[in-house]
Amino acid sequence: MAQSNKYRTGDQVKVRVDSPSHHYRTPTYIQGKTGVVVAICGRYRNPESLGHGGDGMPEQLLYRVAFAQNSVWDRYQGPSGDKILVDIYEHWLDPVGV
């Protein structure tokens, strides 16, 4: 598959807000939040298809996205540098500031 990465390391991305009726692996607490791509983890078969007997194709690119903890939780107690890193598939991400 010659499909190229939509995002690169360092890109800002915003997680889509959605609650599909099928299986998905984007936690609710991170939906709508803006983070930065810190790693491109590779292509994997889509769990939203695999979860329902599908073949998981086409494969989806998986990104590791870092979010500032204090941008995720209003009352985060720790220092402002603390982060939460979540693995998110490309089709759940939108570009920011483009």
Binding site: P27, P47, K83, I84, D87, I88
Partner: peptide, 9 residues
């Protein structure tokens, strides 16, 4: 502190 949420593969 970096918390890793292993949500996927």
């Amino acid at each position: 502190v970096q918390v890793l949420d292993s949500t996927a593969d």
